[in-house]
Simulated assay, not measured.
Amino acid sequence: MLYFHIPFCKQKCSYCNFHFSTSLRGKDDMLNAIKKEVELRHQELEKRSISSLYFGGGTPSLLEVRELSGLLETSAKYYDFDADIEITLETNPDDLDADFLKALSKSGINRLSIGVQSFFEADLRLMNRAHSVIQAEDAIKRAQDFGFDNLSIDLIYGSSSLSIWQRNLQKAVELGVPHISSYALTVEPKTALNKWVEDKLVKAPNEDIQNSEFHYMSHFLQEHDFIHYEISNFAKKDFYSKHNSAYWNAAPYIGFGPSAHSFNGKRERSWNIANNFLYIKGIAENRRNFEKEKLSPKDQLNEWVMIGLRTLRGVDIKALKSSFEEDVLDEFNKHLTSKKDQGLVVEEEGFLKIPQVYWFLADGIASDLFLI
């Protein structure tokens, strides 16, 4: 599994704390550095066969199709693409004009993730999004017209009222998208939204309202044949995200570009420096500016639990028992017993799961199970 972090955006969304630049200066140097990083690191993945390649960011749809194709061509030199590989491009609606989509449809990219966030102008203004509601709807329809049936949209809840959220979901269903990723609006440090909340220019998101909107979304989308397969993700049959699913199954992956993370599938994680200049400089000198960590058995179990309990599938008990020593499992089971007694975690067909009625609280439930 490959991930490319493209660190450029037109403007800064009020809620976003990801690494990116709003200046395209140095774009060519950045793309050359990313290609070189692929060359320098391609042997880190033991398995050459790739089932998923993902362009994230940032806003990778700011790149020209020829630039995206160049990254694909470099990857294909060192990896074997599966016949049914999923190649996803994160996009903003305002980038998806007819010329771009026509060229994109011939590039090998076969899945689009469109950052809609809301079908209401007031929400888009609060989030400081670059697109309009009309652009969002037109982009989805236009992408479908160009053959992009494997389509996902992002939506954010908790920014306004329940009635607005209900209409957002109805619009998504009407547009026929087969995958929806949806996240609660959160106030992150060092963001414009955080400053507005501190200055009392806008109200902080209300957790009770977000809880209600989350449960409404889950019921509504399941009634319309979506599978709620991970807390923040819904898909029609056969439209699960291969990329996200691989993350949740702790598959090895390698990330290229500034701030991109990698995991060797065992106990080592690493992440590139979140600085464009230092990233490019390091790669030019045939070295990588990065940090890494070795996961202890307890760290690894904590990650398995956190990720697994967010999914419909749950945590594989047999895999836990075969992967961890008895003393670690004994300590975990002490924590687990109280959650089972409260009905917050259940055991079904060999998997530990959080009942969907408690999914909005899943991260807190999982963190209570962590081993220190």
Rank of each mutant, 00 (worst) to 15 (best):
E293C: 06
A235S: 12
I180L: 05
D368N: 10
F234W: 12
E73Q: 12
K321P: 00
E349N: 15
K10H: 02
R267M: 06
K35Q: 10
K27H: 01
S75L: 10
A362K: 02
R310D: 02
D316S: 11
W196H: 06
N276S: 11
F120N: 12
L185Q: 03
V65E: 08
F234A: 08
E349A: 15
D225K: 11
V346S: 10
R129P: 02
Q356E: 14
D149R: 15
N128V: 00
A33N: 04
M30V: 14
T311L: 08
V173H: 00
R287S: 07
D29W: 03
L312H: 11
D82M: 09
L336G: 03
L2E: 04
N17D: 15
D95N: 11
D29S: 14
P7V: 12
I50Q: 09
K281Y: 11
H42A: 04
K36L: 09
H243V: 01
S105T: 03
I156E: 11
K266Y: 10
A251P: 00
S159N: 12
R125Q: 09
D327H: 14
F4I: 12
F220I: 04
G257W: 01
Y78I: 11
V173N: 01
F148Q: 05
L96F: 02
L124H: 03
L53I: 08
S132T: 15
Y15M: 05
V357D: 03
K237N: 08
S270T: 04
N276A: 10
S132V: 10
E46Y: 04
Y78R: 12
V345H: 05
A246C: 06
D84Q: 10
Q356T: 14
Y253N: 02
A274K: 05
Y358Q: 09
K318W: 07
L320I: 15
D149I: 07
D145Q: 14
N302R: 11
S160C: 02
I365V: 08
F351H: 14
D82H: 11
N206G: 00
E326T: 15
K12F: 05
P178D: 10
E268N: 13
S132F: 13
E268T: 15
R287C: 03
V328L: 04
D94V: 06
K190N: 13
I227A: 08
D368R: 14
H224Q: 12
A366P: 01
K281P: 00
K237P: 00
K171M: 10
S322W: 03
L124P: 00
Y78P: 06
A172K: 01
L126E: 02
L221K: 05
I153V: 14
S323P: 01
D208Y: 03
L201E: 11
E331D: 14
L68Q: 02
D28L: 05
W271F: 08
S75C: 15
G147M: 07
A136D: 02
S52K: 06
G56T: 08
V116L: 02
I372H: 09
E137K: 15
V315H: 06
N233P: 03
N289K: 13
S51H: 10
G308I: 07
F146S: 01
V197F: 04
D28K: 14
A319V: 03
C13F: 06
E86Y: 07
L371T: 05
D97S: 04
E198I: 01
